[in-house]
Amino acid sequence: MASPFQNRPRPTRRASRLLNIGVPYLWLGLFLLLPVAIVLQISLAEPTAAQPPYAALWQWVEEGVLQIRLDFQSYRLLWSDSLYLASFLNSLQVALVCTLLCLLLGYPMAYAIATAPERWRLPLLMLIVLPFWTSFLIRVYAWIGILKTNGFLNNFLLWLGVIDEPLAILYTQTAVYIGIVYSYLPFMILPLYANLTRLDPTLLEAAADLGCRPLRAFLRVTLPLSRAGIVAGSMLVFIPAVGEFVIPDLLGGPQTLMVGRMLWTEFFSNMDWPLAAALALVLLGLLVVPFVLMQRWQQGALEDRP
């Protein structure tokens, strides 16, 4: 990139580099990268009843002799106790289902906004973003009142006569699906919208001129061209959903096993920090691939900007 700043006096440019690159790098290195290294270290420590509740990984036994004790017990436990494996699988399943539901609802919404008359687009988009500014915790809490046995939804359905007795939705996995789709829908719509508005409308006109029906044109032209947006939106929903804690904890039942909740319990209730650290690392490992996918898209999206 040719920058007019290249002709700055040299010392100024160096100072600017040091400040702009160095300071954020240092901060993120210290508070984002280093902590992950420490998680790895603690996950290999032995849990104890001390404060903090793990044994030191290394110690000087005598002058010049360093003793290092690595304890793989936490990882063994993760593998051998089926509860942990089940919670990982269930988290992935919940995240996958929610991503698909968000896509099913979010795509037509993004498409409708992107093809709406121009002066309507910005207000419509604002309405998508607005709930994001109010408290996430309170918005999830709102669903308790709606989904509970004598809640709004059941009363409404009873009044309509669709059901004869209240449905048990709250404290089930269905409630977790609803909560996650509700909370993450805007993250699906925004990248899809950004992608769909950049689409060249003359392509669809060309398809129509050549006798292609609207549905077919959509499937053969619009959908393939919006693949980047679909991937980005899906990752923005999928990645945080896998590790979600608040939603399964407030809306899910005791049988809703999810990693985020498991980690919380191990840490706060069982005080097993090494096990919680091992859970965090395995979860992080699972998310690396989707993360790289998303990162690629982001770079592509920023580079093809005029």
């Binding site: 700043f5 600017s16 580099r17 984002l32 945080p240 590790g243 998310l287």
Partner: peptide
């Protein structure tokens, strides 16, 4: 403003990670 400086990929990675990293991992670490 600084184009392709050395370590840019790592820089971008560190800047994107907090946007999606599950809260439990950030909090615990």
């Amino acid at each position: 403003r600084h184009g392709r400086f050395r370590g840019r990929t790592g820089f971008e990675l560190l800047l994107t990670a907090p946007l999606v990293m599950p809260d439990v991992i950030i909090g615990l670490s």
